[in-house]
């Protein structure tokens, strides 16, 4: 098998241009909106009142328990079947593959992030909460000043994984006509019949993006953990998030 290097070189403008831009757009937007949804949902999910936590559990269970591809197809092809949806403003969004992807990805990552946050909230040392209550902080102040900041530090490694997985999940957007990285590659493959060259190239681009995300989270974690100061040499490394 000969490897067509000029083809890769010639494809780079298309791949790194619109392809990469759309991939990053989809990832950043769905992760950001997903996080905004997940913060209140995660807090409610950690509630000891089952009337509050159960409905959210059902949401996260459904979205974590079904393949993202099926969720996307349900939104993209499923909603198109209902005539009444098409007569509402909703159709202006659902008509576009981009919005269908954004909705599916956001709801999916919000579900995972909610559970990650719920786990982190429940792992905040109980003594810290009690201490805060003892000095007279209100429930809300405890949540804002103690529980959430601590939970955020705890969840960061797991959350960085979620962001990486989301980046890779954006590749299925190509199945609903979007020309993100994978979509552009498939168009070029269809024209040149050279799957190896193109798939290897985009695999390397995804690897680079993943490295960037992990690096950013590592810096962020170091920033949040700076109060812990120098650790003894035999303590676990902070940067262990990549291996989690």
């Amino acid at each position: 098998m000969s490897f067509d290097f000029p083809l890769i070189w010639n494809s780079l403008p298309d791949l790194l241009g619109r392809g990469l831009v759309l991939t990053i757009q989809l990832t950043v937007l769905s992760v950001l909106v997903g996080l905004c949804l997940a913060v209140p949902l995660g807090i409610l999910r950690a509630s000891r009142n089952p009337w509050i936590s159960k409905p959210i559990y059902i949401y996260t269970y459904v979205f974590r328990g079904t393949p993202l591809l099926i969720q996307l197809f349900l939104i993209y092809y499923g909603f198109g079947q209902f005539r009444w949806i098409k007569s509402t403003f909703l159709w202006d969004f659902l008509r576009e593959g981009f919005w269908c992807c954004l909705i599916a990805f956001t709801l999916n990552t919000a579900a995972y992030t909610t559970e990650i946050l719920r786990g982190a909230i429940q792992n905040v040392p109980h003594g810290e909460v009690e201490a805060a209550r003892a000095i007279g902080m209100s429930r809300f102040t405890v949540l804002r000043r103690i529980i959430l900041p601590q939970a955020f530090r705890i969840m960061l490694p797991a959350y960085s994984n979620e962001v990486v997985l989301m980046l890779q999940a954006t590749s299925i957007a190509s199945l609903v006509t979007l020309l993100e990285l994978t979509g552009v590659a498939r168009v070029i493959i269809a024209r040149t019949f050279a799957p190896y060259e193109l798939f290897i190239t985009i695999a390397l681009i995804y690897l680079a993006l993943t490295y960037g995300i992990i690096w950013l989270f590592k810096k962020w974690e170091q920033h949040l953990m700076r109060h812990l100061g120098e650790r003894p040499a035999d303590a676990p490394q902070e940067g262990a998030l990549a291996t989690r």
Binding site: G80, Q81, W91, L175, T177
Partner: peptide, 18 residues
């Protein structure tokens, strides 16, 4: 020009108005 992986999916999107 909107490209699809199969004719079936393209037909579905025409009927659905995309």
């Amino acid at each position: 020009i909107v490209v699809y992986d199969s004719a079936d999916n393209a037909n579905l999107d025409l009927v659905n108005g995309r």
